[in-house]
């Protein structure tokens, strides 16, 4: 099951019925708390779409509170809170400016999905890691040997790279194979997350 969180609804629910702009740090913190409560209801393993389609303005403070601090809790190489994967949808050009700034500040990365269905990796990711993510994304499902062959890495290095991308919640791991978060295969595969 793919979960859908409309950020604009979270804003109206948590702060004010009349607001459509995500500005100020207290607003961002309140919206993030609401999203976290929603995630608590979803379960320990989930794919969640964070939808900004109906959000007007997103300023840097709110982007830091909502995007960066959310990711920091769920995306950690050492001890992620739970196995939650995020796809960010409805990101406008002006949202992107604030989001890219906070990702850079915290050395984070995330996957955005666009109206044409294409997914993109944004934020701080090494060149080879980005290439690995793209290879898995193009293949639909891939294993370390696919990446090793394409990039010219040893099998062990490719496996380490994919493991890092999984810990950063940019890839989903099933047994020994990987699926890129946001790739076209997710809707059918994602049902297995709760299985």
């Amino acid at each position: 099951m793919i979960n859908h969180i409309d950020v604009s609804s979270m804003l109206r629910k948590s702060v004010c019925e009349l607001y459509s702009n995500l500005v100020t740090r207290p607003t961002g913190a309140a919206v993030r708390c609401e999203i976290e409560q929603e995630l608590d209801r979803i379960g320990d393993r989930a794919l969640t779409i964070i939808d900004f389609s109906h959000v007007g303005l997103l300023d840097f403070s709110c982007a830091d509170e909502i995007v960066a601090k959310l990711l920091l809790q769920y995306v950690s190489i050492d001890a992620p809170r739970r196995e939650v994967y995020f796809v960010f949808r409805g990101i406008s050009e002006s949202h992107m400016e604030a989001i890219e700034a906070v990702l850079e500040r915290h050395k984070l990365a995330l996957v955005t999905q666009h109206a044409d269905g294409e997914s993109r990796l944004i934020g701080i990711v090494g060149l080879e890691e980005r290439r690995a993510w793209e290879i898995i994304s193009q293949l639909g499902t891939g294993v370390s040997a696919d990446v090793a062959d394409a990039i010219g890495l040893s099998s062990a290095d490719a496996e380490r790279m994919l493991d890092t991308l999984w810990r950063r919640r940019l890839l989903i791991r099933y047994d020994n194979a990987y699926v890129a978060v946001g790739s076209a295969t997710i809707p059918s595969q994602a049902t297995r997350l709760d299985a």
Partner: peptide, 20 residues
């Protein structure tokens, strides 16, 4: 036209400096 949102973002940030 791109400036409108950026302009409003800048306004929001400088106003928040007072609050914070």
């Amino acid at each position: 036209a791109k400036i409108t949102m950026r302009f409003t973002m800048a306004l929001s940030e400088v106003c928040q400096n007072i609050v914070e």
